[in-house]
């Protein structure tokens, strides 16, 4: 079936089986493997992408549900080779160890700061409710989001 959508600013058309999940479409068809599949059961948030600007779990949606929408993946938040301020904050604050959960964490964090530019640590924890990290504990992740939010606000 035909699918038309925008991914990371690029308009594209594809022919897919209706049962193709959005996560599989991004990873296998478009080779955007930054969207990770952790649990594949809507629990862990590793597959988080933005659908028309809001964070969703790409493993729990059909690609066809994104028809006419704008999808942003971790690859789309910054030009290739450069680090987004939120990514830089995760590096600076040791907000990751293995990095598997990180793309999802960052996509959730960016959804939060787009609506609340200066969130409290408590709000950051609430916003990351759907993102699990099996390595780090969450202290440094929360610090990273806090710093990333500040860096983005300073940039304007």
């Amino acid at each position: 079936m035909k699918l038309s959508l925008k991914v990371n600013g690029r308009t594209l058309e594809a022919h897919i089986e209706p049962r193709t999940l959005l996560a599989d479409f991004l990873r296998d068809h478009l080779r955007l493997t930054g969207t990770h599949i952790g649990c594949d059961t809507a629990q862990c948030g590793a597959c988080t992408v933005h659908l028309d600007g809001r964070a969703v779990k790409a493993c729990n949606l059909l690609a066809l549900q994104a028809e006419g929408c704008e999808v942003t993946t971790i690859e789309g938040i910054t030009p290739e080779g450069a680090l987004h301020p939120m990514q830089a904050a995760f590096r600076d604050h040791h907000g990751l160890q293995c990095g598997y959960c990180t793309p999802g964490m960052i996509m959730s964090a960016l959804d939060l700061v787009a609506r609340e530019p200066a969130p409290s640590r408590e709000r950051i924890r609430e916003a990351l409710e759907g993102n699990l990290c099996r390595c780090t504990g969450y202290q440094n992740i929360v610090s990273a989001v806090e710093a990333g939010a500040r860096a983005l606000a300073a940039k304007g």
């Binding site: 809507a42 948030g45 988080t48 659908l51 809001r54 964070a55 969703v56 779990k57 729990n60 949606l61 959730s108 959804d111 939060l112 916003a127 409710e129 759907g130 993102n131």
Partner: peptide
């Protein structure tokens, strides 16, 4: 309900 991603969908 659930988490932000569940609430957005």
């Amino acid at each position: 309900i659930g988490d932000p991603m569940v609430r957005n969908a």
